[in-house]
Write a protein that binds this DNA or RNA. Structure first.
Lengths: 217, 217
DNA sequence: TAGATTGTTAATCGATTAACAATC
DNA sequence: TAGATTGTTAATCGATTAACAATC
């Protein structure tokens, strides 16, 4: 039981996309779908989709396709969406506000257990039904609400300290929106979302396109 | 000239990180650095770092390391940071506000050429020194300001239409923050940043950790 | 020369893809 | 049975890593 048949990282990311696409499809009343159709909707090719699903088991029907509901349940279970998780969000600047107001949390099994900020002027502020707390409260909330995920939306220079405090409080996964490289012990997972890096990757490709154009002319 | 010696996608993403790390290092007055030290600061191993840099050429000194300034210039040139690029941002909700206020744009060679929203009540609103415009103005601004990159920060159901209008206006790269899969012609680059997907990946790993813990006990 | 560190090779690892036998 | 589509295999491709010769 609880087999360690490792699912590739890239597959996990795509499963989350499939899950969302399946959500809108079943809202649209569709009850069954082929790998080809789902792959198109998700923007991948069908071989990759079938390979991805094969890591979860085999619950399609040859000649027919997949039952949308079954697929949703299998993927949800695999990703752990069924177990609700509490997250804390540190830093309630512009980005923190946007994240706190993000509607997708609840429907995907996440619950914001607390908002925190180091700036005393922000403490007590109400955002999306929650009240901003000071960093002193962080450890207690993480412990009481069994929080396992921390989201960092502070400026870069505060990120490492916030990270350390989150880890000390017991958080084991961190989603980092601050433009800083965090160092953590390797039992803690960190994922980073970096606007500047995304833009620079696009910029790089723009440049290549321009160079290609020149080469052609 | 303008050689097509392809730089791997993964390398491009890391180069952007190295560039930022080098920025803070040279602010700190450091003038020379070894691959080992830079790799540590960037959170990768030194072999990977050297391999990444080798795609740009070889401008380190054996036995010594790299001159920080030289490295910054080489990476900047490669990524196209030296040529300034104009971007437009569509959707000025919470997230749009956060993005519009993001300080890192200018220092990285990007300039916001316009903010747009479909909601007539938002038109005329001032954000970070810019005025929100209606979608009718989009095409003209893209053309006049030679905008090549569009950022989508709308709700999911508006994303595809906004995308189509951006592409029609002449944008060739899109950064999509809306939780929707965009379909575009393949001369247009799309990168997607998805909060829900990031959280679900973390959630998946949390689950694995919990299962591993149980297995050990 | 001795010590340090780069740049590159070759081995390994992981992910993608096409193709097709299995089977509804 | 004939047509459709899955699940899986094997080939390919790309990225990571360790190791070390080159060289400062």
């Amino acid at each position: 039981m609880s087999e360690g048949r490792a699912i590739p990282e890239a597959t996990v990311a795509r499963l989350a996309v499939y899950l969302r696409v399946l959500g809108s499809l079943s809202d649209g009343g569709l009850s069954t779908i082929s790998s080809e159709a789902l792959a198109n909707a998700a923007g991948v090719n069908s071989a990759k989709l079938r390979k991805d699903l094969s890591y979860l088991g085999s619950f399609g029907t040859r000649g027919v396709g997949y039952v949308v509901q079954v697929l949703r349940e299998q993927i949800s279970t695999c990703l752990g969406v069924t177990e609700h998780r509490s997250v804390v969000l540190v830093g309630v600047g512009n980005l923190g506000h946007a994240l706190a107001g993000y509607a997708g949390f609840g429907s995907r099994g996440f619950r914001i257990a607390g908002l925190f900020d180091a700036d005393p002027r922000r403490i007590g502020e109400g955002i999306s039904g929650l009240t901003v707390q000071g960093m002193d409260e962080l450890a207690a909330v993480v412990a009481q609400e069994a929080v396992s995920i921390g989201v960092i939306a502070t400026p870069a220079d505060a990120a490492q300290e916030v990270c350390d405090r989150l880890v000390a409080a017991g958080v084991t996964s961190i989603l980092n929106f601050a433009p800083a490289v965090l160092s953590v012990s390797d039992n803690v997972d960190v994922r980073k979302v970096d606007l500047a890096v995304e833009l620079q990757i696009l910029s790089f490709h723009e440049q290549r396109k321009a160079a290609g154009l020149k080469a052609v002319l």
